[in-house]
Design a protein around this nucleic acid. Structure first.
Lengths: 246, 246
DNA sequence: CGCAGGGTTGAGCGCTCTCAATATAAGTGG
DNA sequence: CCACTTATATTGAGAGCGCTCAACCCTGCG
C-alpha cells in the first residue's frame, strides 16, 4: 500500500500533508497531518478487505460492533427500520467514505447494504482505539469524522424538515454531483445506484413523487434521465431551484 | 464536587460503577467504568461554569470550536440556519446532556440558545483530547456519546422522513417524558420550554399544525394542555398513536 | 392599562400521497 | 436465445393532510 507525501509549503516542522491515495482512507488521513511513520501505522489499521455482493449486508442493525469500514469500491446504503418494518434510508456511501461509525456505542443501529458489488477495508475498532491514543492526529481526525457525520445528518434534517419535494431532489442531485467529481468522475453524468424507492425513503418522499420530479426536471431542461442514467444539463438551474424559496 | 461510587456486584476487579451525580457529567461517566482516581481526573475536565440567560447563545454556528458543554441546569435548543435564514431546530437539551459535540471538526456548525436561564459546565476540548488518551474508559465514552448522537439524529430522520404529523408530536412528547423521568421529574406533567414554532421546526411542521395537534390530543383525552403546561393523561394512548401505522 | 409575543382556531388551497394501470428493464430457467 | 417472471419506473386521476392566510385570544410585563 502506498501513499503520496507532499511537504507543506509553509507548515510546522516535521509535519507532512499526506494523502492515502490507494488505501481508501482519505477520511482518516485528510486533511489531517501525519508524519510518515505514523502514516504507515494508520495504514496498518486495514486489517482485511472484504467483498460484499450487491444486495448483501455489510452489517445489520443490532449486530455487535467490531469495525468501521472504508469503501474501496462500490456503493452502499445505510438504513434503519421502523417499528412496523418500514425502512428509512439514512445515507448513501461511495468510494473513500467511512461506514459504521454510529456503531461505536456498542452495536450497529443501522444496516449497511451494498447497492452493487463492492469491496471495503475493515478497520477494527480495537486498533483504531489503540492507535488514536498514540497518534494524536489520528485521534483528532477520528473525532472530526464523527463530528462531520453529525453535521451531515443535521443537513438532512434541515432538508427533511423544511424543504419542498423539488428542493430535496435538487439538493440530492447536487450533493451526488459534488461527491462524484471529488472522486474523479464526471459531475454531470452518472449512474444512480439506488432505486426511486430508496431515493424517496432518503428524501422523505414516495417513489412516485421522485419519478415525477425527475420527469419535471427533464421537461424544464435541468437534467436528462433514463432509468438510472442521469445527465445534469443545467447545474445553475438546479441551484436556482434551491434559491427560489418563497 | 462529589460523586457516588458503587462496587459492581460481580464486576471485574478494580473497576467501579461510577455516577457523577452532582457534576452533570453523566454522559461521560455513565455507563462507563472508571476507577476512583480516573474519576477525579474526569471531573477536572470541568474548566469553568458559565451562566447563559434566556434567549442568549451559548455558541453560534460558524464560531470557532473550543469546548463541549454539559448542561447543569436549564434548557437549550440547537439550530442550523438555512441559506435563506430559515431556522431548523436540530435538538433540545436538558440537564446532564452534552452540547457542542458536532463542533469537534473545528467550528460549530449549529447554534445553541438558552430557552431559560441556564448554567453549563465548560469542558475544553484540548483537555478532553489529552485525558482521553490517558484514560481509555473516557475515550470510549466520548466515542459512545458521539455515536449515540448520530443514532439520535437517525431517529429524527426517520421521524421527519416517514411519520405523519400526529405521530411526530406523539413521539416528541414521549421522548420528553422519558427524559424528564430520568432526571427525577414527573413523566406525565411538565412545562414546555420551547414555543410552538420551535417544536414545529424540530418536527418539520408549522406552528399552527402543532397547536391544532395539541388541541386534538386534548380532545381525545390523551393530554391536557394549557399554553406551555402539559399533563399526559394516557401514555399508552400516545404510544398507540405510533403503533397505528396503516 | 396597553402593548407585544405567543397561542388558538377557522376556511380554503395546493402539494404530496394513494391507488391503479402500463411500460420498461433485469433476471431466470428451459 | 427466447419465453416467462419479477423488479423497477412512468404516468394519470383523485383524495387528504398539512400549509397559508387571517382573525382573535391569552398572558406577562413595562
Amino acid at each position: 500500500m502506498s501513499a503520496s507525501i507532499h511537504l507543506q509549503p509553509s507548515g510546522a516542522p516535521r509535519k507532512f500533508e499526506v494523502t492515502c491515495s490507494s488505501c481508501s482512507l482519505r477520511e482518516l488521513c485528510l486533511p489531517g497531518e501525519l508524519c510518515a511513520e505514523d502514516l504507515a501505522r494508520v495504514e496498518n489499521l486495514v486489517y482485511a478487505r472484504r467483498r460484499v455482493k450487491r444486495g448483501d449486508a455489510l452489517f445489520t442493525a443490532g449486530g455487535e460492533f467490531g469495525a468501521v469500514y472504508s469503501v474501496r469500491s462500490g456503493f452502499f446504503k445505510t438504513s434503519v427500520l421502523d417499528n412496523d418494518g418500514r425502512e428509512q434510508v439514512t445515507g448513501f456511501f461511495m468510494g473513500g467514505e467511512l461506514l459504521g461509525l454510529e456503531g461505536i456505542s456498542g452495536r450497529y443501529h443501522a444496516s449497511a447494504t451494498a447497492l452493487e458489488d463492492s469491496e471495503v477495508c475493515v478497520l477494527p475498532y480495537a486498533l483504531i482505539e489503540q492507535l488514536s491514543r498514540e497518534v494524536p492526529a489520528l485521534q483528532r481526525q477520528l473525532h472530526a469524522v464523527l463530528a462531520r457525520e453529525i453535521a451531515r445528518d443535521h443537513g438532512v434534517m434541515l432538508l427533511l424538515g423544511s424543504m419542498r419535494a423539488e428542493e430535496r431532489l435538487a439538493t440530492f442531485l447536487l450533493n451526488l454531483s459534488r461527491r462524484f467529481v471529488r472522486r474523479g468522475y464526471s459531475p454531470t453524468e452518472f449512474q444512480l445506484r439506488m432505486t426511486r424507492e430508496e431515493i424517496g425513503s432518503y428524501l422523505g418522499l414516495k417513489l412516485e413523487t421522485v419519478s415525477r420530479l425527475f420527469s419535471a426536471f427533464q421537461k424544464d431542461g435541468l437534467i436528462e434521465v433514463q432509468q438510472k442514467h442521469v445527465h445534469i444539463r443545467d447545474i445553475g438551474g438546479l441551484e436556482r431551484v434551491l434559491a427560489a424559496r418563497h
